[in-house]
């Protein structure tokens, strides 16, 4: 398993949500990987900070509707247990949990937005605001991108035009996706999904540039 994959499993490791064999393998990896030990320490700090937060009361505009449905058909309300933030990467994060209520037709889901200042969750939810974590990954991306861009610029003429076109078009697609993700993150910086999506898309960009650099080496 690659370091990136182990990093994504650290939250589950902290939550004891891991098969025994995988836990043993992860602990062996941690002994050798300072980067993952650092991420684990950050996640522990986030969890400890979240644990002292109080569970807020449900907002009035949502709970009565759910209660009415319960009284109407007797179906129980199924709420997610409050959980600590589980982020695969050390980025700025806050958790919003989902309240699930059983109605006559089945299970109702309520999307929960990322919490703003003073946000309150619904019953059974815990709004967790975590401290901003250092953007280590962002710096790594910038360094890697800069290095790859220099390599590509120097060897671009060695590639055939069709390959250059494919790489340029694909880079534009990825950059557009990154711009979408950045705009969404500007509106909702605490979104776990958006943070992870941004990181995954950025890794794709680096992977594409590496592949392009490899292609230039193949023809040189």
């Amino acid at each position: 398993m690659s370091q990136d994959t182990w990093t994504e499993r650290l939250s589950d490791y902290l939550d004891a949500d891991m098969a025994a064999a995988e836990r043993v393998a992860l602990e062996a990896h941690l002994q050798a990987c300072a980067a993952c030990r650092g991420v684990l320490a950050d996640l522990r700090a986030v969890g400890e900070a979240a644990a002292v937060l109080e569970t807020p009361p449900p907002p009035r505009d949502l709970w009565p509707g759910i209660v009415a449905q319960i009284r109407g058909d007797g179906a129980p309300v199924l709420a997610f247990e409050p959980r600590r933030a589980r982020w695969p990467l050390p980025r700025l994060a806050a958790a919003a949990l989902v309240v699930v209520a059983l109605g006559t037709a089945g299970v109702w889901l309520t999307w929960a937005p990322g919490p703003g200042p003073g946000a309150q969750g619904t019953a059974g939810t815990q709004v967790v605001r975590t401290a901003a974590l250092p953007a280590v990954e962002e710096q790594d991306y910038e360094v890697a991108l800069e290095r790859l861009e220099r390599t590509l610029d120097a060897r671009r003429e060695g590639l055939d035009p069709a390959t250059v076109r494919v790489i340029d078009e694909s880079m534009a697609i990825i950059d557009a996706a990154l711009a979408d993700a950045e705009a969404a993150l500007a509106r909702d910086p605490a979104s776990a999904y958006l943070n992870r999506h941004y990181d995954a898309t950025m890794r794709k960009k680096i992977d594409l540039m590496r592949r392009a650099a490899d292609a230039t080496r193949a023809v040189s």
Partner: peptide, 23 residues
Amino acid sequence: ENGTFDSDFPVQVQGRRRGDRAT
């Protein structure tokens, strides 16, 4: 972020809003 969700299983989305995730 701003997509939609539909399911054959007895799961329904109420008041879908932007952001994060539902489980």
